[in-house]
């Protein structure tokens, strides 16, 4: 009997060795970069290993599983990299650049959240924030999962030493987001060593623009010739969000039509 148990345990261990491990991340400070950290208010689980598309500088934590709540920690994403890995040359992903304007930075986060699988991602309530000693951007997000579940989120990001640091929290709008928000709010606002100043983020951005690669010799391009058709109509456009991102569906598959999948279910890959 004992031998059988030992054999089962050994087989189970061997089986598990082929699986990824989900480690506990205890409550307490987690470094994002040299001068920036966040303090987790409770224990989280590190689900990074089950998020294969993320870059090395991005960790993902969760309490109830990534479908119910996830906290992205961006720990110094270098310029030229995206939060998610590019899977094919013809399928580019949003890329972070150190000289992104504040609006572009918010757009980058919204696009990245879209690239990890959320849809119709919109941002709102853009406000100044602080990350340790750095000026940050704080904003809220909302979107939908592919199956139509409403998701809410909040993010705080800063560019420190030409790298992106920040935290993005996402959870279903019903129950999970409001339930976690007090902890997340404490975590994000607890980083301020001084009150956030509206002008401060802009000033730090301007510093980066001044250092950016745009050569001063760039002359102002002459205005393009006006289009010769004057007829135009007015289209009401949303002004609420800085970046509204809608998820493009996956690229058309090589195989299309009504096909039987490996598990025996049927699937339509549309094609014309």
């Amino acid at each position: 009997m004992k031998r059988a148990r030992a054999l089962i345990a050994t087989l189970a261990m061997l089986g598990l060795a082929g699986c990824v491990s989900i480690n506990r991340v205890p409550a307490g400070p987690v470094a994002l970069s040299k001068g920036q950290s966040i303090t987790l208010q409770s224990d989280w689980a590190e689900v990074t290993p089950v998020m294969p598309q993320r870059q090395n500088a991005v960790r993902v934590l969760s309490i109830d599983g990534p479908a119910l709540n996830r906290l992205y920690l961006i720990q110094g994403l270098p310029s030229g990299q995206g939060m998610v890995k590019r899977i094919a040359k013809e399928k580019p992903v949003p890329v972070f650049r150190a000289d992104l304007s504040p609006t572009e930075l918010v757009e980058f986060i919204a696009d990245s959240v879209t690239a990890v699988g959320f849809q119709r991602v919109e941002t709102s309530n853009l406000r100044p924030g602080r990350f340790g000693g750095a000026d940050a951007l704080r904003f809220d997000l909302n979107g939908v999962t592919a199956t139509g579940l409403d998701v809410s989120g909040t993010a705080q990001v800063a560019i420190v030493d030409q790298k992106l640091v920040g935290a993005i929290f996402l959870a279903p709008s019903e129950h999970y987001f409001p339930a976690m928000m007090p902890e997340i709010e404490t975590m994000l606002s607890g980083q301020a060593t001084q009150a956030a100043q509206p002008a401060a983020y802009q000033a730090s951005y301007e510093e980066r623009v001044a250092k950016s690669a745009i050569p001063p010799s760039h002359a102002l391009a002459p205005p393009a010739p006006m289009a010769d058709v004057a007829n135009s109509s007015t289209i009401p456009l949303p002004t609420k969000s800085v970046a509204a991102a809608r998820q493009p569906a996956p690229a058309p598959s090589q195989r299309c039509g009504f096909v039987e999948q490996a598990n025996g279910t049927l699937k339509l890959v549309p094609c014309i």
């Binding site: 504040p102 609006t103 709102s124 309530n125 853009l126 406000r127 100044p128 509206p198 002008a199 983020y201 802009q202 000033a203 301007e206 623009v209 001044a210 745009i214 001063p216 002004t239 609420k240 969000s241 800085v242």
Partner: peptide, 21 residues
Amino acid sequence: DAQDRWLIEASLKSLETGGLK
């Protein structure tokens, strides 16, 4: 009532004071 008004105002201030290249 743009939500990024504070950023744009900061930009304008900086442009007025010559803080930008």
